[in-house]
Design a protein around this nucleic acid. Structure first.
Lengths: 126, 126
DNA sequence: AATTTAACGCAACTAAGTTGCAACAATGAT
DNA sequence: ATCATTGTTGCAACTTAGTTGCGTTAAATT
């Protein structure tokens, strides 16, 4: 499954990602687009955009879902398995373009790593 | 706040952690103890046990809360900021006694790191 | 045993995310 | 351009993790 039709709603959602380079939580998106579309539509479009490798998702500090634009993904391979950074002051979430090497773990095969770092962001830094 | 009284319910919850060395999700715990106590009680006891540094919590792959016994914590300092491993086959979650070094990030101060690794556990490994 | 007050059970609530279905609209064919 | 097809949307109702308020119960202390 993926995005098949270029609807108004899809364009509106895409626009939100194009104007903001940081990640957006679904909650924020639903709230921000409540006049444009139903929350069900937001959830469904995000699902499809992720299938298509256009955005990727991850969980913020409360276990709520966040989305951000992908840089080097396709529907086949989601390469964007970078860490994410959430500011504990302003709540903003960003993708970090760094590589965190995961040590080998005996008798276990790590396939996915989900790393959420929390602290003070650039703007909230003392 | 913390555990002030040694009630039957507290002992039952503690017993669950003593008989199982891997982590337990709140959902499982509520279900497993439904004959012993109310789910509200489970949530409240876990909260207090965490405050006291007896257990620590983290989020599993669906954003659901998990708890595991602490090894070197106190109510003042939660030292148990190790990574967790969740098996994608059987769903089991374990604490990993390894250290994942987080690289310094320019202009940001990392205070907490939440690392969830997913893959095949010892038992489900091919 | 009486008193104090933390802890408990219960029911009702909140909020994120999902589902089913009828109505609508983007796309390709005519 | 119009029609038919079928993917997409809105709506309402639902599911489920987690929380809250409050009256009752039961630890701990005297």
């Amino acid at each position: 499954m993926g995005v098949l039709r270029k609807t108004k709603s899809v364009e509106v959602v895409l626009h939100e990602f194009s104007k903001d380079s940081s990640a957006i939580s679904v909650i924020t998106l639903v709230e921000r687009l409540q006049l444009d579309m139903n929350k069900t539509t937001v959830y469904r479009i995000l699902n499809k955009l992720e299938d298509d490798g256009i955005v990727h998702s991850f969980l913020g500090k409360n276990g709520h879902k966040w989305y951000a634009k992908c840089h080097n993904c396709s529907s086949a391979v989601h390469k964007d398995v970078h860490p994410h950074f959430q500011c504990i002051s302003c709540g903003k979430v960003e993708c970090l373009e760094i590589n965190v090497p995961i040590p080998d773990i005996p008798n276990r095969k790590v396939e996915v790593s989900q790393i959420l770092l929390q602290g003070k962001c650039e703007a909230c830094y003392d």
